[in-house]
Simulated assay, not measured.
Amino acid sequence: MSNFAFFVVDGIETGNFTEGETENAFQFMNDLGSSDSLDIQNLLVVAIFEKLVDSEECRKVAHQRLEGKARDLFERTLAGWPSSWPLKINSNAGEN
């Protein structure tokens, strides 16, 4: 499943995905997200969304294409992902 995620990321970032490929990929993710199975939802998050959130372009497309529970899962993944956090460096770290 993670190969699918890398395929999607590459297709979006390089612009090699057609409109139909983009639609099919995100419809597949929407279908997985609509499942009532927590195992399927977890697979979607761990195998796919955790790869997509690292790419700004993929985040933009995901916001446009994901719907319902899949979008909610993506947003929760994004909110908990370090690459989306503003990093604050304490210049006094380590000082007493």
Rank of each mutant, 00 (worst) to 15 (best):
T18L: 03
T22I: 14
E23G: 10
N24M: 11
N24E: 12
Q27W: 09
F28K: 04
M29K: 00
L32Y: 02
G33Q: 04
G33M: 02
S34P: 06
S35D: 03
S35W: 07
S35E: 02
D36H: 10
S37C: 05
L38W: 01
I40M: 01
Q41M: 00
L43K: 06
L43A: 00
L43V: 02
V45H: 00
A47T: 09
A47P: 06
I48G: 06
I48Y: 03
F49R: 02
F49V: 07
E50C: 13
K51H: 15
L52Q: 01
L52N: 05
V53S: 04
S55D: 08
S55L: 09
E56H: 11
E56R: 11
E56P: 07
C58A: 11
R59Y: 05
R59V: 13
A62G: 12
A62H: 10
H63N: 14
H63W: 12
H63V: 06
R65Q: 14
L66V: 11
L66Q: 08
L66W: 09
E67S: 08
E67P: 10
G68Q: 05
K69V: 15
D72M: 12
F74R: 00
F74W: 11
F74V: 04
R76I: 15
R76W: 14
L78S: 10
L78A: 12
G80W: 08
W81Q: 04
P86W: 13
L87S: 12
L87V: 14
L87P: 06
K88R: 13
K88S: 14
N90Q: 12
S91C: 15
S91V: 15
